[in-house]
Design a protein around this nucleic acid. Structure first.
Lengths: 234, 234
DNA sequence: ACAAAAGTGTTGTACCTACACCCATGT
DNA sequence: ACATGGGTGTAGGTACAACACTTTTGT
């Protein structure tokens, strides 16, 4: 019975990370120039090690580049076209993650040549990494419309106008600030702080932070969508 | 530079299929007893071949069991825990598919011991296949609430009451037939036929079929969700 | 006092929900 | 004639979309 295993071809298994960040103005993806491919920008990636799960490997790779832990990470898709890596047949599992750029800036390991690129102005990418980024952007848009994950891209304390700008950037559109803030606040997901943001505008906007227990709970319940009768929306 | 590849460990790559079907009453999953594991039910699966993409392999494996082509197929998740297959380390990419059971019945290859199980009454499964099925059910619920994929589980011609029963089964609930049919018909996705279903009820229900061009178009546009301003729904 | 961004209020409309009755047909 | 499922209609409430004005404060 173990025979059946022995006859099979093994393949290399890689992980690639689409790392999103938000600098206050536009949505960015973190790209690197790898040692062996000096010419081309690519996603941060690495190989699956024998003792790791896929998620552990993706977490490790993210840490190696950014020094960050406790980051939002979600499996995007496995890519396995026979020709995707022209040197050796490789199956790559892509993950996307949402990081707070301020944290990143302080922890970046300089071993990598890395740069943030606006999602609307990407360079040509290695292999099928362009497809991965495309898919990740669509997935982020899809997901952020249904789940409150945008916060993962903002600092602990942020203002409603900042949050609106983030959503403007994700969807490349312009939300109505009145409806936007009403909708966001109606979820009771945000706790208003006493503190105001100084320097950016004259009046200054109030800081908010996420109500973590409620966030966890909401995230969990949204994953188990059992639409109330008649809540099918297409 | 090729050195970097050579140092890496290769792994076996498998595919597993969660095959959903609907028999008119409840939502089912197709399970098999594999040659080497006579004792345990498992998902239909197979190995990735050198010349195949992941999707091609999943399609082939589905065909080998059911004889079906042109089936709804979607990548669910890659599973790669070091211990998931106790014999050899294997990364498995799970796909879920939606089949029309009537088609299947006529094409089933008898080489496999296969059976439909209600999703609410599953046997213990091999390896992590139970997790895969759980995730697939959640994904199907999630997706079917937002995209009109339920049709994939019904014959070409079906009635509104049949469609409602399908959704009742998916969500283990009881939709209101008046609101349900209004909602479905308001999408203009269904074309009413002259023909009535005979035998099941005295009055007989009209058959409908999917307006394919509109279905394709809707499917496409729903995948590129760009919410109209303020259409964030959480 | 003025500019620039923050913050709040209103109203029409569309859709969702809950609920009740009539219709067609096989027995 | 009656039982069984099929099919439609209505009204109240909720949430969304579109839109305009006031507030605060640094210069």
């Amino acid at each position: 019975m173990v025979e059946q295993y022995k006859q099979q071809h093994p393949y290399l298994v890689a992980l690639d990370s689409i790392i999103f960040g938000f600098d206050g103005e536009s949505l960015k993806v973190l790209l690197v120039k790898r040692g062996l491919e000096e010419q081309t920008w690519s996603l941060m990636g690495g190989w699956l090690q024998p003792d790791e799960s896929l998620e552990q490997a993706a977490t490790r790779i993210l840490f190696e580049l950014t020094g960050l832990t406790n980051v939002y990470l979600e499996q995007l898709n496995a890519f396995g076209d026979p020709q995707r890596d022209p040197i050796v047949r490789t199956v790559s599992v892509a993950y996307f993650s949402l990081v707070k750029v301020a944290d990143y800036a302080s922890k970046l390991t300089e071993a990598f040549q890395a740069r943030w690129f606006s999602i609307y102005d990407l360079p040509p990418l290695l292999f099928d990494h362009g497809d991965m980024v495309d898919l990740a952007i669509r997935r982020l848009r899809y997901k952020a419309a249904l789940h409150p994950i945008g916060f993962e891209l903002l600092p602990e304390k942020f203002t409603i106008p900042q949050l609106k700008k983030l959503y403007d950037a994700i969807y490349n559109t312009e939300f109505d600030k009145r409806n936007f803030s009403r909708k966001i606040l109606s979820t009771n997901l945000l706790i208003k702080l006493d503190e105001k943001q100084k320097g950016f505008s004259k009046r200054g906007a109030f800081f908010y932070q996420v109500d973590m227990p409620r966030y966890q709970q909401l995230t969990h319940s949204l994953l188990n969508v059992i639409p109330s009768p008649d809540a099918i929306s297409w």
